[in-house]
């Protein structure tokens, strides 16, 4: 890591810990599930967005975290007939996914 990047990280870490409107990376991490579930309050959401705007590490983390969810969701073939041969069952429910 270059020395200028190290200094920037140090400064960012200091700001995140001291300034009341900013989240630390750990606080951002702790609220990422709630953020994606849409369960943060408007204020918490604003602070989350502000952190991801200021922190490129968390921004790229969030991007790959979202990518992971997207690929796991599409990894299983959602065939229309889930009942093939099972107990002579013939009713199948429609698929649902979270957004």
């Amino acid at each position: 890591m270059s020395s200028s990047r190290r200094v920037l990280r140090k400064l960012r870490g200091w700001m995140n810990r001291r300034l009341p409107l900013l989240l630390t990376c750990a606080e951002m991490d702790a609220s990422v599930v709630d953020y994606l579930e849409g369960e943060l309050s408007p204020d918490q959401r604003r602070r989350f967005h502000l952190h991801t705007r200021l922190c490129d590490d968390c921004r790229s983390f969030l991007e790959s975290y979202r990518a992971t969810i997207a690929v796991s969701r599409s990894a299983f073939d959602h065939s229309t007939n889930e009942l093939t041969g099972l107990l002579s069952a013939e009713h199948s429910q429609p698929r649902r996914h979270p957004n």
Partner: peptide
Amino acid sequence: FDSEGCRIV
């Protein structure tokens, strides 16, 4: 996270 509380990624 590093000693500054920044994410190591």
